[in-house]
Amino acid sequence: KWTIEEKELFEQGLAKFGRRWTKISKLIGSRTVLQVKSYARQY
């Protein structure tokens, strides 16, 4: 389950980097690239 903080970081990353999942993953820190991709599908 994603925390509110992780969701906010995901949204910031999406706005800043677009669909560059590796960069978003590094920004969040606690999620892998695969987790970020998977979350993006449901987002």
Rank of each mutant, 00 (worst) to 15 (best):
K1Y: 11
K1E: 12
K1Q: 13
K1A: 11
K1P: 06
K1V: 08
K1D: 15
K1T: 12
K1C: 08
K1W: 08
K1I: 12
W2E: 07
W2P: 06
W2L: 04
W2I: 01
W2S: 07
W2C: 02
W2T: 06
W2Q: 05
W2V: 02
W2F: 07
W2G: 08
W2D: 10
T3I: 11
T3R: 04
T3M: 10
T3D: 06
T3S: 08
T3Q: 01
T3L: 14
I4Q: 05
I4C: 13
I4R: 05
I4P: 06
I4N: 11
I4D: 13
I4A: 11
I4E: 14
I4K: 09
I4M: 13
I4W: 05
I4L: 11
I4H: 05
E5M: 08
E5H: 07
E5R: 10
E5T: 09
E5S: 12
E5V: 07
E5C: 01
E5G: 01
E5N: 11
E6M: 15
E6G: 15
E6V: 12
E6Q: 10
E6D: 06
E6A: 15
E6T: 03
E6I: 14
E6K: 15
E6Y: 06
E6W: 15
E6L: 15
E6F: 15
E6C: 14
K7Q: 12
K7Y: 01
K7R: 09
K7E: 03
K7C: 00
E8Q: 12
E8T: 12
E8A: 12
E8C: 06
E8G: 12
E8W: 00
E8H: 09
E8F: 01
E8L: 08
E8R: 12
L9T: 07
L9F: 03
L9K: 14
L9G: 05
L9C: 00
L9M: 05
L9R: 10
L9I: 11
L9Y: 04
L9E: 01
L9W: 06
F10A: 07
F10C: 02
F10R: 03
F10D: 02
F10M: 06
F10V: 02
F10G: 09
F10K: 07
F10T: 05
F10Q: 05
F10W: 01
F10H: 04
E11M: 06
E11K: 14
E11A: 08
E11T: 12
E11Q: 08
E11P: 06
E11R: 07
Q12I: 07
Q12W: 03
Q12M: 08
Q12P: 04
Q12T: 12
Q12V: 10
Q12K: 11
Q12N: 08
Q12D: 02
Q12E: 14
G13F: 14
G13Y: 04
G13H: 04
G13W: 13
G13A: 09
G13N: 00
L14E: 00
L14Y: 08
L14G: 01
L14R: 06
L14S: 06
L14F: 08
L14V: 12
L14W: 13
L14P: 04
A15M: 12
A15Q: 14
A15C: 05
A15V: 11
A15K: 10
A15G: 10
K16Q: 09
K16C: 05
K16R: 13
K16N: 08
K16F: 05
K16E: 08
K16Y: 04
F17Q: 03
F17W: 12
F17L: 00
F17M: 03
F17I: 05
F17N: 03
F17C: 03
F17G: 04
F17K: 02
F17R: 02
G18C: 04
G18W: 15
G18A: 06
G18V: 07
G18H: 05
G18M: 08
G18E: 03
G18K: 13
G18F: 14
G18N: 08
R19Q: 14
R19H: 14
R19D: 13
R19P: 15
R19M: 13
R19C: 11
R19N: 11
R19K: 11
R19I: 04
R19A: 14
R20F: 12
R20G: 06
R20M: 14
R20L: 12
R20N: 15
R20K: 14
R20I: 11
R20A: 13
R20Q: 14
W21D: 08
W21H: 01
W21L: 13
W21Q: 08
W21C: 06
W21M: 10
W21N: 01
W21F: 01
W21R: 00
T22D: 15
T22W: 06
T22C: 08
T22V: 09
T22I: 05
T22Y: 12
T22P: 11
T22S: 14
T22R: 10
T22E: 15
T22K: 14
T22F: 07
K23P: 07
K23R: 09
K23S: 09
K23I: 11
K23L: 09
K23E: 14
K23T: 08
K23M: 06
I24V: 08
I24M: 03
I24E: 02
I24F: 04
I24L: 09
I24Q: 03
I24Y: 00
I24T: 02
I24K: 02
I24C: 03
I24R: 01
I24G: 01
S25W: 10
S25N: 00
S25P: 10
S25D: 01
S25L: 15
K26Y: 02
K26W: 02
K26R: 11
K26A: 11
K26V: 03
K26S: 07
K26N: 12
K26I: 03
L27T: 05
L27D: 02
L27H: 11
L27V: 06
L27I: 06
L27S: 06
L27F: 11
L27M: 12
L27G: 03
L27K: 02
L27P: 00
L27N: 01
I28E: 01
I28W: 02
I28A: 00
I28T: 00
I28G: 00
I28R: 00
I28P: 02
I28S: 00
I28F: 02
G29Q: 13
G29D: 01
G29P: 11
G29C: 08
G29W: 15
G29K: 11
S30V: 03
S30R: 04
S30I: 05
S30F: 03
S30K: 03
S30A: 04
S30W: 00
S30N: 03
S30M: 03
S30D: 02
S30C: 05
S30E: 06
S30H: 05
R31C: 01
R31V: 00
R31T: 01
R31A: 02
R31F: 03
R31G: 01
R31E: 00
T32K: 06
T32C: 07
T32Y: 00
T32R: 02
T32F: 04
T32D: 11
T32Q: 00
T32A: 04
V33I: 11
V33Q: 06
V33R: 13
V33D: 04
V33E: 11
V33L: 11
V33M: 13
V33G: 06
V33N: 04
V33H: 07
L34F: 11
L34G: 15
L34S: 15
L34W: 13
L34V: 14
L34C: 14
L34R: 12
L34Y: 14
L34I: 10
L34Q: 15
Q35H: 04
Q35M: 10
Q35W: 12
Q35N: 05
Q35E: 13
Q35Y: 01
Q35D: 09
Q35A: 13
Q35K: 13
Q35G: 05
Q35F: 07
V36H: 00
V36W: 03
V36D: 00
V36P: 00
V36Q: 02
V36L: 09
V36F: 06
V36S: 01
V36R: 00
V36K: 00
K37N: 03
K37Y: 09
K37E: 14
K37Q: 12
K37T: 03
K37L: 12
K37R: 13
K37C: 06
K37G: 04
K37P: 02
K37W: 09
S38A: 13
S38D: 09
S38M: 10
S38P: 01
S38L: 07
S38E: 15
S38K: 13
S38W: 07
Y39L: 12
Y39M: 08
Y39F: 10
Y39W: 15
Y39N: 01
A40C: 06
A40P: 00
A40V: 12
A40F: 15
A40D: 02
A40L: 12
A40N: 01
A40H: 09
A40G: 04
R41P: 02
R41M: 15
R41K: 14
R41T: 13
R41Y: 10
R41N: 14
R41W: 07
R41A: 15
R41I: 08
Q42C: 10
Q42Y: 06
Q42A: 11
Q42L: 12
Q42K: 09
Q42V: 08
Q42N: 14
Q42M: 10
Q42E: 12
Q42G: 11
Q42R: 07
Q42F: 10
Y43L: 12
Y43T: 10
Y43H: 13
Y43G: 10
Y43N: 11
Y43W: 14
Y43V: 13
Y43A: 13
Y43P: 09
Y43F: 14
Y43C: 08
